[in-house]
Design a protein around this nucleic acid. Structure first.
Lengths: 154, 154
DNA sequence: CTCTATGCAAAACCTTTGCATAGAA
DNA sequence: TTCTATGCAAAGGTTTTGCATAGAG
């Protein structure tokens, strides 16, 4: 919601710069997939993204979607995350503060949250074992309030 | 290391009780896989466990290993965890305090750690969004001390 | 023109399932 | 005996790869 033009410009610039540095080209599909990805403000799987494209009449092969998403992750536009079900999800990364996920085991709803104190405790715990943290993945699985109240009702 | 007999007895009792309650039987493979699993003090994949069994001359089918591991998870002997690579890892659960994982991106070494303060902050963050946490998964990816010193040296 | 991007199909990977049969209780 | 356990092979579900060709620069 409320995607500032500024953000989009920065993302486009990052993408262009990455392509240049790696001597890659801005193929038609690559641009379509990027535009669609950036227009979706939640994490998506390759499949979901392809479906979204198909609904707009753009028939992009699943392999291409995967290759695009990996590319976006490489250039810092996307963050890849794997949750329990084995599928890979991608979400916007650039300009988005780091966050973790709450996932409702009943309805699947996910909520992003951010707790800087947890992050610093992670660093501390890691350095106590000689580790330097590069990235982390934290998912809390449980039940959201609406699923809990429904469960009570039934 | 240092597995007290007490622990093993408890685990065997849990297993037996679960089998009884569910009218399952203690098949030969099931016992072999359990013994091997309990003898390994780190998380394993189904494949690794099967290889370990094979090295002892026990040819257990991969499907059976999967079925056994799911069974162990159901009866509280094992905890299943999925990390970034998409494979399922199983580790001892009974009698083991909850812990999270540090994973070295270079050498793959993993270290378990436990930080109760993080746990309580997770609860807090979840309840701020109306969630009740049932379980969570926290992995910190980075580089361990030995990989970092090697990198410096080269 | 040259080298990358793309689609398609096949392969790879890991896990699960179906089915016939061995084996517990 | 009866019902579960097991092996094997096949199926599933998702991601990756090979290859021929379209297409960007």
């Amino acid at each position: 919601m409320n995607r500032p033009d500024r953000l989009l410009r920065d993302e486009a610039a990052m993408f262009a710069s990455y392509l240049r540095q790696h001597r890659l080209r801005r193929g038609r599909r690559r641009q379509e997939v990027l535009a669609e990805f950036l227009s979706i403000e939640r994490h998506v799987t390759a499949d979901e993204l392809r479906d979204a494209l198909k609904r707009k009449g753009l028939g992009v092969g699943i392999a291409t979607v995967h290759r695009c998403l990996e590319l976006f992750a490489s250039c810092g536009l996307a963050r890849k995350l794997k949750v329990g079900n084995g599928r890979a999800y991608y979400e916007h990364d650039y300009g988005h503060a780091h966050h973790d996920h709450l996932i409702c085991l009943d309805c699947g709803r996910t909520v992003e949250f951010c707790e800087p104190l947890i992050e610093s405790l992670q660093e501390k715990a890691a350095s106590a074992h000689g580790f330097l943290v590069k990235r982390h993945s934290l998912e809390l699985y449980g039940s959201c309030s609406s699923c809990r109240s429904q469960a009570k009702g039934s």
